[in-house]
């Protein structure tokens, strides 16, 4: 075993994570607690009707508890980084090249587009029905897992996935900062939202956009985790 292992994330993503932490701490220091919310559940449900989002779990996850979602994404990133550090194998020559089952190959070709479309649907319609970014991202990662175990020639390029991941993480913070500049609160809903349009796809302001960003981030991290678990060389 060689001790020399490359960290599979670029320094850009490292800067992104440190920026997330610094901005979160600054925001917690700068924000005031609202003093008019005494009971959590019913008051939040009444407030929720002003945001134009049908699924109130989405509102709680993305809007009222947006900081916690940011922290949770950071935890997922650190877990993915740790798995990549432990299981990254630079020697790709010894990976077994035998073909998978014929039925599995044909079935994966038929099923994988359906799985991807289902994951995208769940991710995009998270503010109108059951679902959201976490579930949709994991469904897309399971589709990638199906492609990885079925076909020999399919490899996900880690550079591409890192670009997705970095863009998603940075845009989350950027949207939050725009809300801070315009509306004086982190993740403020600065896009126009109309209660009478509740139920349409383009409703709810920034809430569906943020859930789609969360979905991209979770999907890319899960794909990297699954790829690292599969590509591990046994015989070194």
């Amino acid at each position: 075993m060689s001790l020399k292992r490359t960290i599979p994330m670029t320094t850009v993503s490292g800067f992104g994570v440190s920026a997330v932490f610094i901005l979160t701490i600054l925001n917690i220091l700068m924000q005031n607690m609202p003093s008019n919310i005494y009971r959590a559940g019913d008051e939040l449900l009444k407030l929720n009707a002003t945001d134009g989002v049908a699924n109130s779990v989405t509102t709680v996850v993305v809007y009222f508890r947006g900081f916690d979602t940011l922290g949770e994404i950071a935890v997922l990133f650190i877990a993915s980084l740790g798995i990549g550090l432990m299981l990254t194998n630079n020697n790709l020559n010894n990976i077994s090249q035998e073909n998978s089952n014929f039925m599995l190959q044909i079935g994966a070709k038929l099923l994988s587009p359906v799985i991807f479309i289902f994951g995208l649907y769940i991710m995009i319609y998270g503010h109108l029905s059951v679902g959201g970014g976490f579930q949709g991202g994991v469904i897309i990662a399971s589709g990638i897992l199906l492609l990885l175990i079925s076909s020999n020639g399919f490899h996900i390029s880690h550079k591409f996935v890192e670009i997705f991941e970095t863009l998603a993480g940075v845009s989350y913070v950027v949207i939050g900062l725009i809300g801070l500049i315009i509306l004086d609160s982190f993740l403020g809903n600065f896009l126009p939202y109309d209660i009478s349009k509740m139920g349409l796809l383009l409703s709810g302001g920034i809430i569906p956009i943020i859930y789609i960003i969360v979905g991209i981030k979770v999907g890319s991290e899960m794909s990297v985790i699954v790829d690292n678990m599969l590509k591990r060389n046994i015989d070194d």
């Binding site: 959590a40 559940g41 939040l44 509102t59 976490f134 979770v218």
Partner: peptide
Amino acid sequence: PIPHAMILTAIVIGMA
């Protein structure tokens, strides 16, 4: 909805 949101995040963290 608040316990639902908390458990939803806890499931993802448990998997990681």
